[in-house]
Design a protein around this nucleic acid. Structure first.
Lengths: 359, 359
DNA sequence: AAGACAAGCCAAAGCGCTTTGAAGATCACA
DNA sequence: TGTGATCTTCAAAGCGCTTTGGCTTGTCTT
């Protein structure tokens, strides 16, 4: 059943039927009802390709999916997607994934632009030296970034979380609890979120008058294996005098490995080691259900997905005129994995005046 | 730049240019080269919507993405997607996701069918009472299933792994090692893979002459939390005489929780408890890097993704005429988490004749 | 009563591509 | 030189929808 047949059936022109269906005002209510009823009864659905061609709109948003042997689409993506999907649904929007290996990313964007198969794209996993912003801008593809490069040139639109603030606050808490030897098992610092987090940790240390060099910082892909490996380096292999009393972790996966190493070494949270981890809110891996519930900086990546879809639609339709740079605050949730530094390590209490100045 | 402009530029008809670009034989080699060169130089890419409309082909495969507050898109999906993407890439095929809540799934398929936005769909997470097969067949959408319903009616095409065989073999090994009290922490038995696995476990027990009722079977969503909860039920809360000496686990996530519970209860693998888990091969969570490396039944879900894309393309093009039902064998990989049953529980050795008959 | 205006409808022109059916060029062969 | 066969190329007709620019009506002014 196509428009032509439907309109013949109703003895109306294609124009009228089309307008009735799309809610234009030039159709009488009576006709509109008649058309809608007939369309529904015969199961008429406009051919999406014809509509796309005629309107120039694709009705879908795109994402260039990084693939390749060594690129692991991480679980964050699914969670994000899930949020995006929830919103997309309400707008009858599809999501189109264009797979591309990292080295051929730019080609993929060119293809998207030239073939007009999507109305806009979102970018994620922003790197420090982000190339894609300039590219999609030049190609004229409406876009919205999830995260931001180090220097968001020319004010492009993004949704990001306050990674700097989150890790600043987490670090400040640890310092307030008397910890002095801190370790930070960070994500890959090629990505800007990891740099922001590091900045936050350092700022908190500096605020407290602690030499930034004392931070034991490790950067690696966020997974169980690396968490385990690095925790062992810190707690098993290193000079005992250097052992951190608190660890900041960039993801729940990393933390899985850290907790495994600590268990194995017989170290207890929070008496021996305090841990604060970032939690992207995975439904299948909850910090509160660990043996020792974990303190976290929490921000739902799923909510970000929904929001990004919402804004991208606005950007495409032109409703969002000036690029908005949205930075979400992050909650610091204290559970059982954080506590005062072990006595032998406890920091000498500072004089009241000094403490006040630091606030 | 569109076809019209390009052909004007070359002083050729649109027909000829289109044919040259699409590799039809009616074009002289000289013209073809000239056309290709010009197209490349001016960055001409055919408008995908126009092409789709003209050919009726969409150049993309679809998936109805389950969304909704209580549906958790699990990490298996990403891994699968990643494999699919790898293959799709080589064929310049996009993947189109249509988000839909479970109750409105059928509507989504209707929309896909009527709007002709994809050439075919793949179905996954097959349930026992699978409705979708009949639906997509009726709608005339080419499809390929990942997994199979309990009774694959009318021989539809699928790719599945031998879940029954995998869990049979794993169970047989445990029985050979003398275990008699087995627990199986299964996935949700609404899904057919979980039923197949249970069948496998039961068959191995029956083969060995063990009453099937002795199996402690638990079915729940595969995540850390449930693994932990159920392991505690089995090892902490239950009558000590009932404690299993071996546990089969349906996923690495479940196993994370099991291992956590065992650690907490001071139970060691494999001396106190043997564990075998199914491993879908997540790059971020490897059974071999656990403190006690885990024995697994292994099948790469990513490889399945790639294969499904490959076959779906064949199905769409008509290259696969008869529906092929492909079942992949699953490897049983023994690592350190499995060992002989603890002495006090060890099974009485059967008489040689009986043992031979069981083979 | 005539003009102005709005409401409701329609024919036809795209959107940019593929594909059909036909025609012009070229060639082999008698 | 004529004739059919074989290459090349082309004009035009779709694909199914949206949208422009009228054309009729009927209603409201004055």
């Amino acid at each position: 059943m196509n428009l032509k047949q439907l309109s013949a059936l109703l003895d109306l022109s294609q124009t009228t039927v089309s307008r009735a269906l799309n809610g234009y005002p030039e159709v009488s209510e009576a006709t509109r009802r008649r058309v809608l009823e007939a369309a529904h009864r015969h199961g008429y659905k406009p051919n999406s390709n014809a509509r796309k061609l005629a309107t120039g709109r694709a009705g879908s948003i795109g994402y260039v999916l990084p693939v390749g042997r060594n690129i692991d689409l991480d679980p964050h993506f699914v969670e994000f997607l899930s949020g995006l999907g929830e919103h997309a649904l309400s707008r009858e929007i599809d999501l189109s994934l264009t797979p591309a290996p990292y080295e051929r990313e730019s080609e993929a964007y060119h293809r998207i632009a030239a073939s007009r198969s999507v109305d806009g794209v979102y970018l994620s996993s922003m790197r420090n030296d982000e190339q894609r912003i300039a590219l999609v801008r030049e190609l004229g593809i409406p876009f919205l970034a999830h995260g931001r490069a180090l220097k968001p040139e020319n004010g492009y639109a993004f949704v990001d979380i306050d990674n700097e603030g989150a890790f600043h606050d987490a670090t400040r808490l640890l310092l307030q609890l008397g910890h002095q030897r801190l370790a930070f098992i960070n994500g890959d610092t090629d990505f800007s979120f990891a740099v922001h987090r590091l900045d936050g940790v350092r700022r908190a240390m500096a605020d407290r008058g602690l030499p930034v060099a004392k931070l034991q910082h490790h950067s690696a892909a966020m997974n169980e294996e690396n968490g385990y490996r690095i925790a062992n380096m810190l707690f098993r292999d290193a000079d005992p005098a250097m052992r951190p009393t608190a660890v900041l972790s960039a993801s729940m996966f990393t933390t899985l490995g850290i907790v495994r190493a600590l268990n194995q070494l017989g170290l207890k949270m929070p008496d021996d080691v305090s841990v604060i981890t970032h939690d992207d809110v995975f439904p299948f891996l909850k910090p509160e259900s660990f043996s020792v519930p974990l303190s976290t900086t929490r921000s739902s990546i799923r909510a970000a997905g929904a929001r990004i879809c919402e804004r991208l639609v606005d950007i495409i339709s032109g409703a969002e005129r000036e690029p908005v740079q949205e930075i979400w605050p992050v909650e610091l949730i204290v559970r059982a994995s954080t506590g005062p530094a072990p006595a032998e390590h406890r920091m000498v209490r500072r004089r009241p005046a000094e403490a006040a100045a630091a606030e």
